[in-house]
Computed example of a mutant assay.
Amino acid sequence: ESTRHVADVFVSRHDLEDTYLPAFRAAIVDAKAGSIMCAYNRINGQPACGSDLLLKEHLRGAWGFKGYVVSDCDAVTDIDEHHKYAPDPAAAAAVALKAGTDNECNTKTLGDAKGLGERYREAWKRGLISMGDIDTALVRLFSARYRNGDLAGLAQRKPNQTPASAIDTPAHRDLALQAANKSLVLLKNDGTLPLKPGVKVAV
Rank of each mutant, 00 (worst) to 15 (best):
I79R: 03
A176L: 11
F65E: 00
Q156V: 09
G61S: 04
L138Y: 09
A7V: 12
T109V: 08
A62W: 09
D133I: 06
R119H: 14
D18V: 06
K182S: 10
H83L: 12
F24G: 03
L177P: 01
F142L: 08
A166S: 13
F142N: 11
G115Q: 05
Y146M: 07
N181D: 10
R42L: 05
A179E: 10
A26R: 13
G100A: 05
R147E: 11
V29A: 12
G50M: 01
I167Q: 07
R126A: 10
D74K: 04
L116E: 01
N181P: 06
G191L: 10
G191I: 14
H14F: 10
D112V: 00
P170F: 10
S2R: 15
D52N: 14
P163S: 09
Y68V: 04
T19L: 12
D112L: 04
V70E: 03
A176F: 11
D112G: 05
N148Q: 13
T136S: 15
V9P: 02
P87W: 12
G45S: 08
G191S: 15
R121G: 04
I167P: 01
A90N: 03
N106T: 11
T136I: 06
L54Q: 02
G153Y: 11
K56M: 10
S143R: 09
H172N: 08
I79P: 01
D30P: 15
A91L: 09
Y68F: 15
R25W: 03
T136D: 13
D8S: 05
D150W: 15
D8R: 02
A86E: 00
Q46E: 15
D18F: 11
K125H: 08
D78M: 09
Q178I: 10
A99D: 03
P89L: 05
A48I: 00
I28R: 03
V69K: 03
K125Q: 13
N41G: 05
P163Y: 03
G45V: 02
R60K: 14
R121Q: 09
A7N: 02
A26C: 08
